[in-house]
C-alpha cells in the first residue's frame, strides 16, 4: 500500500519547483495590491464623510465574510458576461488583492486605534500639526502593532494561492494536479506540494517574527 517512488519524485520535482516561482510571484503581486488597496480602505473608513465611511465598511465586511475561492470564480466569469475578458492571472490577482485588502485595512485600523489616546493628547499639547502627528507619532507606533498582522496575512496569501488553480493559473497546485492526472499518481505530487509550502511558510513566519521583535527593539518598545 505504501509505495513512495523516489525516481518519480526526481522526475517531477523540477516542474514543481518551477511552478513554485509562479506561486511566490502570485503571492507577492497579490500582497502588493492588497497592501495599497487596504490602506485606501482604512483611510476611507477614517474620513469624516459618513456615507463613504459606511459604504466602505460594508464592502469590507462583505468581502471578509465570503469565500475567496468563490470570489475568484466571480471575478473570472462575470467579466465575460458583460464583454470584459480577464486572463486567469488578472482575475486571480484582483480577487486575492481585494480579499486581502479587506483584511489588511482592519490591521491598519487596529494599529492606528491601538495607539493610546494620551499620545494624541501629548501631540496636541505640543501643537504638532496633523501631518506630523501621523507621520512622527502615530504611524511609527502603529507599525509594530500592525506588523504582526501584516506578516500573518503575507503568509496567509501565500497559502491561499492554490485556489488560483481553479481558474487555471499555472501555480504549484495546478501543476501537481496536472502531474497527478498524467501519471495517475497523487501521493508524490500532493505530498511534495505540502512539503514545499511548509518549507517556505515556516521560515518566512519565523523571519517575520524576528523582524517584528527587531522593529520593536529599535523603536524602544517593550517586546510583546
Amino acid at each position: 500500500m505504501f509505495d513512495w517512488r523516489w525516481a518519480f519524485v526526481a522526475d517531477i520535482l523540477p516542474r514543481l519547483l518551477k511552478a513554485t516561482g509562479n506561486t511566490v510571484l502570485a503571492a507577492l503581486l497579490g500582497y502588493g495590491i492588497a497592501a495599497i488597496l487596504g490602506l485606501v480602505f482604512a483611510l476611507a473608513q477614517r474620513t469624516a464623510i459618513a456615507s463613504v465611511n459606511r459604504t466602505v465598511r460594508e464592502v469590507v465586511e462583505f468581502i471578509r465574510s465570503t469565500p475567496l475561492v468563490l470570489q475568484i470564480f466571480f471575478v473570472f466569469y462575470v467579466g465575460p458576461q458583460f464583454g470584459i475578458t480577464l486572463s486567469p492571472w488578472a482575475a486571480g490577482m484582483i480577487a486575492i488583492g481585494l480579499h486581502y485588502a479587506s483584511y489588511l485595512s482592519e490591521v491598519y485600523r487596529a494599529g492606528i486605534e491601538g495607539v493610546p489616546k494620551g499620545q494624541w493628547e501629548a501631540a496636541l499639547s505640543l501643537s504638532l500639526s496633523p501631518v506630523r502627528t501621523y507621520s512622527r507619532i502615530i504611524i511609527p507606533q502603529a507599525i509594530p502593532t500592525a506588523f504582526a498582522g501584516m506578516g500573518n496575512y503575507f503568509v496567509g496569501i501565500f497559502k491561499d494561492t492554490p485556489m488560483l488553480s481553479v481558474i487555471g493559473v499555472a501555480e504549484l497546485m495546478h501543476t501537481a494536479n496536472a502531474i497527478g492526472s498524467e501519471h495517475y499518481r497523487f501521493l508524490e505530487p500532493y505530498t511534495l506540494v505540502g512539503g514545499i509550502f511548509l518549507a517556505i511558510s515556516l521560515p518566512t513566519a519565523a523571519l517575520l517574527r524576528r523582524l517584528e521583535a527587531r522593529i520593536r527593539r529599535k523603536m524602544g518598545l517593550r517586546p510583546r
Binding site: Y190, V193, L198
Partner: peptide, 24 residues
C-alpha cells in the same frame, strides 16, 4: 499545529481525499 497552519487547506483536502486511500 505547524503542519496544518504551514500548508494550504486546499492541499490538505486533496491529500486527505486522494492520498490517504493509498494508506488504506
Amino acid at each position: 499545529i505547524e503542519v496544518f497552519r504551514g500548508t494550504s487547506l486546499l492541499v490538505q483536502i486533496y491529500w486527505i481525499f486522494f492520498v490517504l486511500p493509498l494508506f488504506g
